[in-house]
């Protein structure tokens, strides 16, 4: 199948891993995810000021301002994300929270805000947005416990809390394996979802780690005292040694 600007789908998947946006006006897209386009399109930085009114209305996430751009004009725009699956979501006066690195684009009719859970963005209102995932997305109704690494997001629900599996941790101690500085796996620590709504799970977050998590951590260090920064430094060194 050979596509051209007429035959490419409008606001639909080209295949499981590529999505074609029919841009007429403006759309927010994640930087670096455009793979090709037909037509007259321009790309402007969110922070550049050219679309101040639009950004003020729809982009309420200063931490991620460098991760998104505004696509303007008329044309067919194809997005891809390292061969990961891409799906579009239609919100009708709803809210969906998604791992920020996986938010590929959204219509300006939606409002994009930072979630209270670090590394996640919440999309509110009515409109379409795009998210990538490692493998197809699986929807689960709560109550459910999810490994943080496989969590893509959640809809119409309160934020999750952590739950530790003490049986598993005891077993690990019994085997004389050290936890110190080590990464905890999904078997000993999960995110616990309760209430009404849906949880979105993917097969792995590996390969999807964007800069946003790092930016988030760096931004939070600005409020630390000197002795706290030293403490942080020693933790980082310990982590590095344990890698």
């Amino acid at each position: 199948m050979i596509f051209n600007s007429q035959t490419l789908p409008a606001n639909d998947n080209v295949n499981s891993y590529a999505f074609c946006m029919d841009v007429r006006g403006e759309a927010f897209i994640q930087k670096g995810k455009m793979i090709a386009y037909y037509g007259a399109l321009r790309f402007e930085s969110v922070s550049a000021g050219a679309y101040d009114a639009l950004v003020r209305q729809s982009f309420n996430s200063p931490l991620y301002a460098n991760d998104f751009v505004v696509a303007t004009g008329q044309g067919k725009l194809i997005l891809g994300d390292r061969g990961n699956n891409i799906d579009s979501y239609d919100l009708e006066d709803g809210n969906l929270t998604v791992r920020s690195a996986n938010v590929l684009g959204f219509e300006p009719s939606l409002v994009c805000q930072e979630s209270t859970v670090p590394g996640y963005l919440t999309l509110l209102g009515t409109g379409k947005f795009l998210a990538s995932s490692n493998g197809p997305v699986h929807f689960i109704e709560p109550p459910v416990r999810v490994d943080e690494d496989a969590l893509l997001g959640w809809a119409d629900m309160p934020s999750p809390s952590y739950r530790y599996d003490y049986g598993y941790m005891r077993g690990m101690f019994g085997m004389a394996r050290s936890f110190v500085g080590g990464r905890s796996s999904g078997e000993e620590k999960q995110l616990d979802f309760t209430g009404q709504g849906a949880v979105l799970v993917q097969s792995s977050e590996m390969g999807l780690v964007g800069r946003s998590n790092l930016d988030d951590v760096i931004a939070r260090t600005s409020s630390l005292q000197q002795n706290e920064l030293h403490q942080l430094l020693s933790v980082i060194q310990q982590r590095l040694q344990n890698r």
């Binding site: 459910v144 999810v146 496989a150 796996s185 799970v201």
Partner: peptide, 8 residues
């Protein structure tokens, strides 16, 4: 180990 991603 490490392969559990969710459970009910």
């Amino acid at each position: 180990r490490g392969s559990m991603i969710a459970y009910t």
